[in-house]
Design a protein around this nucleic acid. Structure first.
Lengths: 245, 245
DNA sequence: TGTACATCAGTGAACGCGCGTTCACTGATGTAC
DNA sequence: TGTACATCAGTGAACGCGCGTTCACTGATGTAC
């Protein structure tokens, strides 16, 4: 252990672990999370089933790796999309939403592992936490920056919010370093909920087969509603660029 | 076959089928849809595994039965709740939403079968359709009746809606016998999406463990946002009865 | 620079489990005469 | 009303499959002297 450089064994090991995770992801896509099996992964890796245990303690550990990687892949996709996005919060919100949708459509099973029905008999451990909040942190950051710049109109209080829930909002404000008032947190919460609800419907194919010809547009219409709800200035129709998907 | 009354054999048969479905539902709850197994059902029924095939053609057929029953159980729950609800559309909307949430929390696995990740290797056949749209039909009906009575303020057009999607909306208007304009359909669509997104987050436990002390209140706050989005008159805070859950 | 040794990737057999589905059968039960 | 027969629920064995995980092992490879 005196050397800082990883030796050839460590490199081979890292490569094999990467292969196992890649094959695991492929199996997720074809057979679903519940059917993820170390024996099948071993088969595809061209190795006897017990050999996989050199790299992965158990089936559940592999699932956990895939969960963490999934949150990070989604978070990376959003971050990458936001680098090229203009500074306008409404646009950044839309870009974030579209990126989540596109990532989910490209990786439906991986998305399902993160945001679908929990895998029976598997409990994601606590250390999935940090990567798991990257997207919501992004969304809240965008809304908060818009608020700080005075770009959103704060709605007059519409709802009773109890002290208990208000305290939860204080904690959220601290955790994400926000300045927004409760009403805006509520709107952001609804926006977040709708975003993943809409992606679920789309990815899991829960609209009727022929109900909507252009689901990307339906998704965008939902986003329009959320921007309105958040108090962003209503985008002029001719400014909404639907071609950038 | 000359008698109209079901004979004792038919009665016993119906009872056994009901038992199989009940046991199937219990297994859904404890082991998840992917793990639903006819052998396990037979075991709980106190019968040899092959006997179940007298009643059910295959595992997939049992799943389909449970899907159809699930949509109907949820639809029945909503219908029952609406019978006792006042005539006010905003209240009926809230009652519908709360009933969906409560049913889902009471039957999380059954709910997951309907609205969670699709069961891998199982495709719900087309004839699940009719019961599957009961809830959305209810929601649209409520919004439509509010519109017809002039109880919602129609927002000025905010979004570009292409001809293709507009045609889809025409079909929806016909299917559900609606009078509402496109903008209201979009808002209702967002409301429907948010409803199931919020229930998903709640049932599948996807908020952080300690993020919200009172999830019923969080849900209600989401509903408040949706009522606002739909153009319902903002309910005065003291009129929102949070105790009726 | 060369060699001995420790490390560790991968093997193959085994344990005990569960699954969906088919098939020839037994025997109770309902029904037609 | 009584009996013969057809119906059909349930049996038990079998087929062929896949799973997670353990364990003693072989043999290649990296490393320390």
């Amino acid at each position: 252990m005196s050397s800082d450089q990883p030796g050839p064994r460590a490199l081979a090991r890292a490569q094999t672990i990467a292969d196992i995770k890649r094959i695991g992801r492929e199996h997720l896509a074809t057979h679903g999370a519940a059917a993820l099996s170390l024996r099948a992964v071993a088969r595809d890796l061209g190795v006897v089933s017990s050999a996989v245990y050199r790299y992965v303690r158990s089936r559940d550990e592999l699932l956990t790796m895939l969960v963490v990687d999934g949150y990070n892949a989604l978070g990376d996709a959003v971050d990458a999309a936001l680098i090229d996005a203009p500074d306008d919060p409404a646009t950044r919100f839309r870009v974030t939403a579209r990126t989540v949708r596109e990532w989910a459509l490209a990786e439906p099973a991986w998305y399902g592992l993160l945001f679908g029905t929990p895998v029976p008999g598997y409990d994601a451990p606590a250390d999935t936490g940090a990567p798991g909040i990257r997207v919501v942190a992004n969304l809240l950051g965008i809304v908060d920056s818009a608020y700080r710049r005075g770009q959103i109109s704060v709605p007059t209080a519409e709802s009773v919010i109890t002290a208990r829930t208000s305290a939860d909002f204080v904690a959220i404000r601290e955790q994400f370093d926000l300045a927004v008032p409760d009403q805006v947190i509520v709107a952001a919460l609804t926006a977040w909920t709708t975003l993943f609800g809409a992606v679920n419907f789309d990815v899991f194919d829960m609209y009727g087969r022929d109900t909507f010809a252009d689901r990307a547009e339906i998704f965008d219409l939902n986003i329009d509603q959320l921007l309105h709800l958040l108090g962003f200035a209503v985008p002029r129709p001719d400014h909404v660029d639907r071609s950038v998907r």
